[in-house]
Design a protein around this nucleic acid. Structure first.
Lengths: 160, 160
DNA sequence: ATTACTTTGGTGACGCATCAACAATGGAGG
DNA sequence: CCTCCATTGTTGATGCGTCACCAAAGTAAT
């Protein structure tokens, strides 16, 4: 074991800034989305891949993989969205276990109304204040961290 | 109005990587914390400033400001933690409206047991794969985005 | 075909987060 | 003092996210 290595000043600063960024940016985007279109971040996350799919139709499993969610989370969210008329669940022809999620006209209208403002917000908060060089550094850094986490997960459960 | 400016390829990549990073990193840290010490991220967030305060005692308002939470969120979380014996609420002598939050011995033991492993996780996932130059870029970029969000909030409600 | 295992999805319970509403105190100005 | 307002904190309702568990259907081995 030995003495744990605490974060040095530079690391602590980046870490606390990351936590604050997560909190503030996610919060600001969510508030804007709710205010302008009545959609939550979770709604928006699902509406994007659905709106890009042919006929606004996706297998639940496929939708979950595209947004990186587990089955349970997806199921709960789809249920809430179905109750509000944004999507409908349908049975899957090829695989009787499966479930299809289809965008309704109301859902398509909602994402269409919300997207421009949301993208504007992301641009205003994030990309307007970052240089092209910084974007490159961020992109590479984020990818490396993601690869590290994925590798660590594999080590914990190689079968997945 | 006019046509919305969508994200270019570089921006879209960074944005999706950021969303994935948020999801995966937060999730991995939370799972490790729960597995190793039975604490959630929310618990940990509050235990850190409390453990650094004299006598493990902080005014609720002060605690909320240190972690960047609103009053309601803090109140709910403190209630849950009090039920598990990690903290206790006490009345505030100087201001009868106020409420003090005090770390219990069990709470201090919990953060002491959890912190080394948690810091190790942050280091392993994040700082082990980032260079010193990247840290500098990240720190400056994050700060600039935070300043932008804060400025935008002020514009929306200058009284705050 | 039967058994065993995996994949897919749903459900209930509980913790977390936000919002609106409320209560109580503190403080400033008449 | 008293009125008005801001500050501090709590609560209940609701949405979000995870976990443990279950059920049904596919799939592979015997």
């Amino acid at each position: 074991m030995g003495e744990p290595r605490w974060l040095d000043e530079r690391e602590a600063h980046v870490w606390r800034a990351f936590l604050a960024l997560q909190r503030e940016l996610t919060g600001a985007l969510e508030r804007g989305l709710v205010r302008d279109s009545g959609l939550s971040n979770a709604d928006y996350s699902l509406l994007v891949p659905l709106s890009e799919a042919p006929d606004g139709l996706l297998r639940a499993r496929e939708l979950g993989m595209r947004v990186g969610w587990e089955r349970s989370r997806l199921s709960h969210q789809v249920k809430r969205m179905e109750k509000r008329g944004l999507v409908v669940r349908e049975e899957c022809a090829e695989d009787a276990r499966g479930s299809m999620v289809r965008l309704t006209p109301a859902g398509r209208a909602a994402i269409g109304a919300a997207a421009p403002g949301h993208v504007d917000s992301v641009r205003r908060y994030l990309f307007d204040v970052l240089s092209r060089e910084e974007l490159d550094v961020l992109g590479r850094a984020f990818d490396r961290v993601l690869a590290r986490i994925a590798a660590d997960d594999d080590e914990a459960d190689p079968t997945r």
